[in-house]
């Protein structure tokens, strides 16, 4: 078994959440890596939709931005941004949306806007982008985020995208909400009755104590916690090829 690091484990675990045939809305950063990894491994027929308007994009290399020409050139259709958000995302045609987070709370509410007060922020973050509508309308939302007490917080400074609401019971949007949170330590899933994010799986070599220590709230841990299978050689080869921007045969 080859060597791998926790970031690679996180990317691989995220990619495994995509099923073959899923329609996946892809954003910049780790989601882009995960979606393209899935397409090069177990889900060759997943359909990649980029918010820049490219539908069924088949990038030959990992795109560096969501507006790379390769996406438009390989897409079945390229639509305008209003059409993308109204007719495709908002209308519920997306199976899976991947999101990142600067802060996330126990009910999966996400902040990508500011640290501190909105009027006078300590840190001005990029903002909402496409995430609020993806969080609302995608059938499943998968959050990819490294665990730390600064990121996994009791209360987010700003709700950019809604998970299950302030107490876990306020979700009104049509999609299921954040069904998985993939971290560098393991996988969190909402408790079926309370929607509280609960640690259900650990990556190989990670302890429950580590996951608890890097969470800013008292983390619930599922009984009979399972271990995530380590990355396979095929997954690692594909992941590293993507990161090195090697072209695929497809």
């Amino acid at each position: 078994m080859p060597e791998w690091d926790s970031a690679e484990m996180m990317n691989v675990a995220a990619a495994r959440e995509l099923h073959d045939g899923d329609v996946c809305l892809v954003g910049v950063g780790p989601p882009n890596l995960a979606a393209n990894l899935a397409r090069r491994t177990h889900a060759p027929n997943c359909r990649l939709v980029y918010e820049s308007g490219a539908i069924d994009a088949k990038p030959r290399r990992l795109p560096l931005s969501i507006g790379d020409d390769d996406l438009a050139a390989t897409a079945t259709a390229v639509v305008s941004v209003p059409e993308m958000f109204n007719f495709w995302v908002g209308a519920g045609r997306i199976d899976v949306g991947f999101l990142g987070a600067a802060q996330i709370d126990r009910f999966g509410n996400i902040n990508t806007t500011v640290i501190g007060a909105h009027a006078h922020p300590k840190v001005r973050l990029p903002g909402a982008g496409g995430a609020p509508e993806i969080a609302a309308a995608a059938r499943r939302v998968i959050v990819i985020v490294k665990q730390s007490p600064r990121t996994f917080v009791e209360t987010v400074d700003f709700v950019s995208s809604v998970g299950y609401g302030p107490t876990g019971r306020e979700r009104v949007a049509p999609g299921a909400g954040p069904t998985r949170v993939i971290t560098d330590h393991g996988v969190l899933e909402p408790d079926p009755s309370t929607n509280e994010l609960t640690l259900t799986r650990l990556h190989p070599g990670v302890t429950v104590e580590q996951a608890v220590a890097t969470t800013g709230w008292v983390l619930k841990v599922a009984e009979g916690i399972q271990e995530v299978p380590a990355p396979t050689t095929a997954e690692l080869t594909a992941l590293r090829g993507l990161r090195n921007r090697e072209a695929s045969d497809a």
Binding site: N86, G90, T113, E133, V159, S160, E170, A173
Partner: peptide, 22 residues
């Protein structure tokens, strides 16, 4: 908001934003 502007309508309607601090 641009689409409403292009149509010279005062506002646009969407499902998003509900529950966000935006």
């Amino acid at each position: 908001a641009y689409s409403a502007g292009a149509a010279r309508l005062p506002f646009a309607v969407l499902r998003g934003y509900r529950g966000t601090d935006l």
